[in-house]
Every structure is written in structure tokens, then in C-alpha cells.
Computed example of a mutant assay.
Amino acid sequence: MLHTYIISLWMVKTCEKLPAIFICIRKHPDYFSDTHQFVTILIKMDFNIFLLFLALTILFLSYFLLDVNYFIRAVFTIFMSKFFRKPIKFYGKSAIYGIVLPMDADLLFTHMNNARVFRELDFGRWDHLQRSGLLGILYRTKGWGVVSAQTCRYRRALHMFMMYKIETRPVYYDSNNIYFEQKVISIRDEIVRCLAHVKLAVNLDLDKVIAKHFPDTVKVPAPKDLELYIDYNRVNSERLRVTKKRSKSLTLQEIENDDVNKQGEQLLDT
């Protein structure tokens, strides 16, 4: 990453004076018994050294508390999509490229971890949203979009240092949801390694937005596999709502009777 490279160059320039610190610590160990004294001596010796330690501390805390690489790559993806890539239509297909690195590996260090696939799919959607103009529409209307459901088939493994591309395209939309189909394809053999369907929920009336900003777009029916996935989400939501209503409708007497029955079952088991 660019920021890591810049900090590394700074470290090379400033670390030439680091041996003086270690010599001072070795000759005067009592001076460094207190943290405040240590910081004061650092400032007196060389302010650049103090800035170096401060920068390293901030960098360490940033990587410890935040997924810095994710945010940097998301901003970089949007920047490149806006200024250096061609716009696409709503149903247009976008593609980004990547390579499997050790940071993506599972415990065996042989292929990409399944969880990292979903992370990579995020960047594919960022690219499509920016190039299609949907991201700008959400920004201007103070809208938002969140992933409310996603599923993925892991057809083949993405092996270490394998180059791949992520193809992203919307296949269906309703009043408040956009359904993306995303494919992870290996460059070497053009095999679809992973296939995902992602439901992006937005707080806008998509029928009006599409009609206004994409007047030449003709709404197409959902593919058969996506229809089944939409039905799954609907049935699952209904089941959870029924379970929630049932738990709220239980009276105190029913709860007490249920506790008594559980105690009786425990006594019989013993």
C-alpha cells in the first residue's frame, strides 16, 4: 500500500539515529525507569525520532482496531471507478481483478478463506455502484444501502497466488432491493470459482429512481434460482415473525407451567 511505502521511506531516513537511543539506554538504564522521563529524553535527543515512534504507535493502533486495508482499498476502488473507468448502464456488467495473497489464506495456507470471498465481493459492488451512477444518486438523495442477505456457492478453490476477476451485475430489483449476481472467475482457466447472490436494501423507491435516472432500462423478471432465494428469505422472515409474536403472546401462567414441566422432565431424567 502507498501509505506503508511512504512510512517505510521515512523510517529509513530517521532510523539512522536509533542506535544513539540504545547506547543511551545501555549506559543509563536508571533514566528510563519512568515513562515520562523516557519520552522527555526522546524529545531532547531528536524530535524526529519521537515523531517516528508516534507514527508507528498510531499505525499499530490503526491496524489493531480498524481494518485499514479494507477502507483504503474501498476508497481506491471508488476513486479509480469514478475517474479512470467507463460508466456502465444499470444492468451493465462490471469487473475488478485481484490475486490471492497469504493474508487471504485459510489455516492451511493453500487457498482463499471463504470469509474473504464476501469481503472481495464488496469491492465489486462498489465498482458497479460508482460506474452505474447509483452511488452518486444515493449520496445526492442522502440515501443508504446495506446488504440484508447474501449467499455464495464455493464451486472451486481459489489457490494461493491465483489471479481472478469478480464480475458484478444486477439481475433483478423491486421497490426497495437490488439483487446482484457476482462471479469470482479464475483468469487462467475462466472457471467460475464462486457464485453469489447479494440482496442490497436501499431506502429509496427504486421504481421511481430507475425510471428517472435510467429511462432506457427495461425491468426483467428474476431468474429461477433467484426466485427461490427470494422465497427463502420471505419464508424465513415470516417464520421469525411468527416465533417472535408467539413468544410475546405467552402469558405469565404459561411461562410458569412451562418451567414446571421442564423441572419435571429434569427430575424424571435423574
Rank of each mutant, 00 (worst) to 15 (best):
T4I: 11
I6R: 15
L9V: 13
V12D: 02
T14R: 08
T14P: 01
E16R: 14
K17P: 00
F22Y: 14
F22P: 02
I23N: 13
I23V: 14
C24N: 15
I25C: 12
I25H: 01
R26P: 00
R26E: 11
R26I: 09
K27E: 15
Y31I: 03
D34F: 02
Q37A: 14
F38M: 14
V39K: 14
T40M: 08
T40R: 12
I41M: 09
I41Q: 09
I43S: 06
D46K: 10
D46W: 03
F47S: 12
N48S: 10
I49W: 03
F50P: 02
L51G: 05
L59N: 14
F60N: 09
F60K: 05
S62V: 04
Y63L: 09
F64V: 07
V68E: 01
Y70L: 09
I72T: 07
R73K: 15
S81N: 09
F84I: 03
P87R: 08
I88Y: 03
F90Y: 10
G92V: 04
G92Y: 04
Y97H: 11
Y97A: 05
L101R: 13
P102E: 08
A105F: 04
N113T: 04
N114H: 11
A115W: 00
A115H: 05
F118P: 00
W126T: 02
D127E: 13
H128C: 03
Q130V: 11
R131V: 03
S132G: 05
G136A: 14
I137K: 05
L138H: 01
T141C: 01
V146F: 13
V147A: 10
V147D: 05
A149R: 07
A149Q: 07
Q150V: 04
T151Q: 12
T151F: 05
C152W: 05
R153V: 02
R155G: 01
R155K: 13
A157I: 04
L158N: 12
H159F: 11
H159A: 08
M160P: 00
F161M: 10
M162N: 05
M162I: 04
K165T: 03
K165V: 01
E167S: 12
P170R: 03
V171L: 12
D174K: 09
I178M: 03
F180E: 02
E181C: 08
Q182L: 08
K183V: 00
V184L: 14
V184A: 04
I185H: 02
I185C: 05
E190H: 06
L195D: 01
A196Y: 00
V198P: 01
V198F: 00
A201E: 09
V202I: 12
V202K: 01
L204G: 03
L206I: 11
L206P: 02
K208H: 08
A211D: 10
A211L: 07
H213D: 09
P215E: 06
P215V: 07
K219D: 04
V220K: 15
A222R: 07
D225R: 11
L226I: 14
I230Y: 03
Y232C: 02
V235M: 10
S237I: 05
R239V: 10
R239N: 13
L240R: 15
L240W: 09
K245P: 00
K248E: 15
Q253F: 02
E254V: 04
K262R: 14
Q263T: 12
G264D: 08
L267M: 09
D269S: 11
